[in-house]
Design a protein around this nucleic acid. Structure first.
Lengths: 240, 240
DNA sequence: CGCCGGTTTGAGTCCATTCAAGAGGAGTGG
DNA sequence: CCACTCCTCTTGAATGGACTCAAACCGGCG
């Protein structure tokens, strides 16, 4: 029984309007999309590789990650998402999910049917462009991750990941201070950066003792943002 | 002086119709897009990181690659493109190029203005979906590359890259036998896989002596396709 | 209190890198 | 036609960043 409400999808509209200009009618059409709310516990799957879905999930609260598994069983985390992100929009046009989506924290999502999304996109070309652009920015982030994993050392990779998540949290209006959520285990940080958990541990210790960061599990304090940015070879241009 | 002709852009239409159904009117609209032909020598830039362009390039012949440079100066190759590929379609919606595009061989491209592309997309929603889907498949390939670089060893990475390029050449109708073009230096293969040229060299030698491949520079013979596929942990699903 | 997932630490190993030099091959110009 | 250059490929030896394996530590929670 799909629901419809004019504020629940606001985080999604907020994200889209960050990079695309939308008219009031277009925003209303998005907010009026029928949706179905669901919650997930940490570790549970929103989408499994190989799934065929008929709706996409918009993240309302919490964090999720996307991942693929290699033949060896090794897991690679491809992206981390937060409030406002459309976590599997690509499945609205691709038949079969090529990767999984899992909850990092307790999350709340709004499911919107592919049909409804494509209808709005067809009615409002500006919405189509906004959604397309959103996936293009996603793509740009993937490219930066390829660079990160392919060409940077452990400290750079971890610093870069942290910079990205911190900046995106600010953009999403989730925080402002030097305090950021980082709800990943060291093992997961390793899977996201192509390192082992053990090596992540050692590298984080070095970063802490060098005064780049402090704070404990689940939450980091970026004590020296310019230095961290330099350490991570971080340039925000790729986030568009 | 833009040109217009009904067969030049056929490779592009061929690629789009591989994954999206298009009506005759839509195909005609694509073929009638105004374009401008240009050729590039190996190594020359089609797009530079930071550029703002007003048109996108469709690859008519030859090979190009996309790349980003890390702060250290290291180069990461992000993707390789061949005939029919829209190599910088993302720039039609993003302001500033976040990576470069360079010719691998002598190439011929058709430039189509962003304006014209977006107009066709607005007139024909099916075209908009086809282009969007095309960029989503691109995205899926980036994800697989993240997995490849992040979780696989040298032999797997190189085998995987080779499998992908071979399969895409077949799909594009560029060849059929066990003979494939591979117009990359070992250094470039290294940049695409996050390895050094020296190690690519040693790994290729081992692969040759294990009977996976043979042939010389610029062109490979895949002597044992099933074995190569296994060696590269290659699963074509991600190419959709 | 005792379990459990996550973090920390140590020691040994290895895959890939670095540095350096030599060989091969294609193209250029005298 | 040969000398010369440049680029790529090849090879060797030494180094090192990250991995593996394994055990101990820690804090939260039932």
């Amino acid at each position: 029984m799909p629901n419809s409400n004019s504020t629940v999808l606001a985080p999604v509209v907020g994200k889209l309007t960050q990079h695309s200009q939308l008219a009031l009618a277009e925003i209303d059409a998005l907010l009026d999309l029928p949706f179905r709310i669901a919650t997930f516990d940490p570790g549970s799957y929103l989408v499994r590789e190989g799934d065929r879905t008929d709706s996409s999930a918009a993240l309302l609260s919490g964090f999720v990650y996307r991942s693929k598994i290699a033949g060896s069983g090794a897991r690679q985390i491809l992206a981390v998402h937060l409030r406002g992100d459309l976590v599997d929009l690509q499945n609205s046009l691709l038949n079969e999910a090529d990767h999984s989506v899992q909850a990092l924290t307790r999350v709340e999502v709004a499911y919107v049917s592919h049909r409804a999304i494509l209808d709005v996109a067809e009615t409002f070309p500006a919405v189509a462009r906004a959604l397309w652009r959103d996936t293009l920015i996603d793509s740009s982030v993937f490219r930066e991750w390829i660079l990160n994993i392919g060409q940077r050392n452990a400290r750079q990779r971890i610093s870069h990941l942290l910079c990205e998540l911190a900046l995106r949290q600010e953009k999403a209006g989730l925080c402002e201070g030097p305090n950021y959520e980082w709800p990943m285990t060291q093992e997961q940080i390793g899977d996201a950066t192509g390192l082992t958990g053990v090596h992540v541990n050692r590298t984080l210790q070095a970063m802490r003792s060098d005064g780049l960061i402090s704070g404990n599990r689940q939450s980091v304090i970026i004590t020296d943002w310019p230095k961290l940015q330099a350490a991570g070879d971080f340039n925000r241009a790729y986030l568009h």
